[in-house]
């Protein structure tokens, strides 16, 4: 037996481009500026596309975010994803990873109940937690492998390699499974002409909190077990660097090494 015609989900998040990252007055991320697909999610999409080339099937991109996240979903479909779901609702504002994972898993349960494989990015560059993939897997009772950089077919199972401290482990895992993908796994492709021609906003379905079967108590700030209580600017408290730029190389290096060996008075 072997895997065929899989129902594949890619969890994809739109993030601010690093240079445009800023906070609003309330300390929350300002998402109105220039945005892009989270790089790790791009790597996840690439693995999904490669897998579909081998076994066939349908790729649905699922994202939670503001209405302007549609532009990233269109970009994903131009690369070859078949359709997209955007969960978008003001009630979702302030969701922590627990509430985000609940919203995403509820969406998959209700609208994509036959999902075989979920691809997630290892982490996002804005939230940077690596929580959401494993938490979605827990809510759905899926197997999981994170930090994945290699995927092969193995009968009706998958053979995947993950990074661990000091090396790699290779697993045989049954489906349904959630795989979180490391950017080291691949170089994501750009849009293809054929896929771009097929892409239309009609292939994006937008759902509200009510439609995915949740209440306002279960999402957003109300449904989040954690909150950000305070944000401080980081001040670098190191004294300024001491430079040794005068004299011959021998003298400079000599003085530098002498300084390194000097005992600190304080701390």
């Amino acid at each position: 037996m072997s895997l065929k015609d899989l129902n594949i989900v890619v969890l994809l998040k739109q993030v601010p481009v690093p240079k445009a990252m800023k906070t609003k007055a309330d300390g929350m991320m300002d998402r109105s500026g220039k945005s892009m697909i989270n790089p790790y999610c791009n790597a996840a999409l690439e693995e999904a596309l490669k897998l579909r080339e081998k076994v066939g099937g349908v790729i649905t991109v699922v994202s939670m975010g503001p209405p302007n996240a549609k532009q990233s979903l269109i970009e994903a479909m131009r690369k070859g994803a078949d359709k997209s779901i955007l969960v978008s609702d003001r009630l979702l504002a302030g969701s922590d990873t627990w509430a985000t994972a609940l919203a995403l898993s509820s969406t998959i349960k209700k609208y994509l109940p036959d999902t075989d494989i979920i691809f997630a990015g290892l982490q996002t560059i804005d939230g940077d937690t690596a929580h959401v993939g494993p938490q979605v897997a827990e809510h759905l009772g899926f197997q999981q492998v994170t930090y994945v950089d290699k995927i092969e077919l193995e009968g009706e199972n998958l053979k995947v390699r993950r990074f661990v401290e000091g090396g790699w482990e290779t697993f045989i895992t049954p489906i349904p499974v959630m795989l979180s993908i490391h950017t080291a796994a691949n170089t994501p492709r750009g849009p293809s002409l054929g896929a771009a021609l097929r892409t239309s906003e009609d292939n994006i379905t937008v759902y509200s909190v009510e439609q995915i079967g949740l209440t306002k108590e279960e999402v957003g700030v109300a449904g989040s077990p954690t909150i950000v209580s305070r944000v401080l600017n980081v001040v670098i408290d190191r004294p300024p660097v001491e430079l040794f730029n005068e004299g011959s190389a021998t003298e400079r290096v000599g003085k530098l090494l002498e300084a390194v060996n000097r005992k600190e008075e304080s701390s």
Binding site: D128, A130, P134, A137, E138, Q144, T146, P225
Partner: peptide, 22 residues
């Protein structure tokens, strides 16, 4: 760590508690 970031979120989800990362 690479293992802890695999383990902790799933434990937190099962225990229905929040988790703060890194």
């Amino acid at each position: 760590s690479a293992i802890g970031r695999d383990l902790a979120p799933r434990c937190a989800a099962r225990l229905h508690v929040g988790l703060s990362a890194d």
